[in-house]
Simulated assay, not measured.
Amino acid sequence: MTARRLHRMRQTLEHRQPDLQVLLDQVHKPHNLSAILRTCDAVGVPRAHAVSRHQDFTVHRAASSGTGQWVDVQTHTDLPAAIRTVQGAGMKVYAAHLSEVAVDYRAVDFTQPCCLLLGAEKEGVSAEGAELADGHVIIPMFGLGASLNVSVAAAVILFEAQRQRLAAGLYEQPRLPEAEIRRTLVEWLHPRIAERCRNEGRPYPELDEDGAVIWQPATS
């Protein structure tokens, strides 16, 4: 454990954007999922929501270069429940979906609380998802292909969101509560200790300046 590693992790958490999230509906190919999570980490998206028929939601570490583990993935039983969760948290849901009401993705104000809805690799966003979304966005294309790979589309749109948020100064100050940053640092640096604390109902330990656990003396 080094102070440099602790500093890098804390800096990462201080750039997280809690009101910018992603919702994946039936995106089940591991390489696509991993690539999307890698982009989420890169732009500061702390959480991805996932709806999948597959019980095992697998992340390819090779494709995500290990970054998939830094993004929380919350699973949902169905799409309406997932969308209600996101909208209930005050975020608008924008579906990457070609329709008569779709707008250029660059025309959306991504500095506002929002969540990007991405559909399955072949089918795209479902009719149900398109109906429940607050808006539709498209990436203008001038070639013969009808669409981009879902992970590529996610990267294009999320980096536009990052560009807008950088210009608005949303990365300049931490947007996560300090208590959440400390809790997450323990989970990232000491996952086994964090799991043990959760199982035993005990608070997480404090960390020293190098990221090592500060053990408190046992009380009789």
Score class of each variant (00 low, 15 high):
Ala35Asp: 04
Pro18Lys: 15
Leu37Cys: 09
Ala133Ser: 09
Glu14Cys: 11
Arg8Asp: 15
Gln17Gly: 07
His31Val: 08
Ile157Glu: 00
Glu131His: 15
Leu117Asp: 01
Arg61Ala: 14
Gln173Cys: 08
Glu121Ile: 07
Ser65Arg: 11
Arg5Asp: 13
Pro191Lys: 11
Leu118Asp: 00
Asp56Ile: 10
Met9Arg: 10
Gly169Ile: 04
Met91Glu: 02
Val156Gly: 04
Arg84Pro: 00
Thr77Asp: 13
Thr184Pro: 03
Pro140Ala: 09
Ile138Pro: 01
Leu117Ser: 05
Pro80Asp: 03
His15Trp: 13
Ser220Phe: 04
Ile181Leu: 05
Ala218Phe: 08
Thr12Ala: 15
Leu170Arg: 03
Thr184Val: 12
Gln112Cys: 15
Glu121Asp: 07
Ala120Asn: 04
Glu121Ser: 07
Leu13Cys: 12
Thr219Met: 15
Arg16Ala: 04
Asp72His: 06
Gln17Leu: 14
Lys122Ile: 10
Ala42Pro: 03
Gly201Phe: 14
Thr67Met: 05
Val103Tyr: 08
Gly129Gln: 04
Asn149Gly: 11
Ile214Lys: 12
Gln55Asn: 14
Gly169Leu: 10
Arg84Glu: 14
Thr85Arg: 10
Arg5Phe: 08
Gly44Cys: 06
Ile181Ala: 07
Gln11Leu: 11
Thr67Asn: 07
Ser34Phe: 04
Glu100Pro: 06
Tyr204Arg: 08
Ala168Met: 03
Val73Pro: 01
Gly68His: 01
Arg38Asp: 03
Pro174His: 06
Pro46Glu: 02
Gln55Val: 11
His7Asp: 14
Met141Thr: 11
Arg53Phe: 13
Ile157Asp: 00
Arg8Ile: 06
Phe110Val: 04
Val156Glu: 08
Arg10Asp: 11
Met1Tyr: 12
Leu6Gln: 11
Thr2Ser: 15
Leu176Asn: 03
Ala120Arg: 00
Ile157Gln: 01
Pro191Asp: 05
Asp109Leu: 10
Ile36Val: 14
Ser65Asp: 11
His31Leu: 09
Gln69Asn: 13
Ile157Cys: 03
Ala179Lys: 08
Gln164Tyr: 06
Gly124Tyr: 02
Ala168Ser: 14
Gly119Ala: 11
Asp210Tyr: 10
Thr67Trp: 01
Ile214Tyr: 05
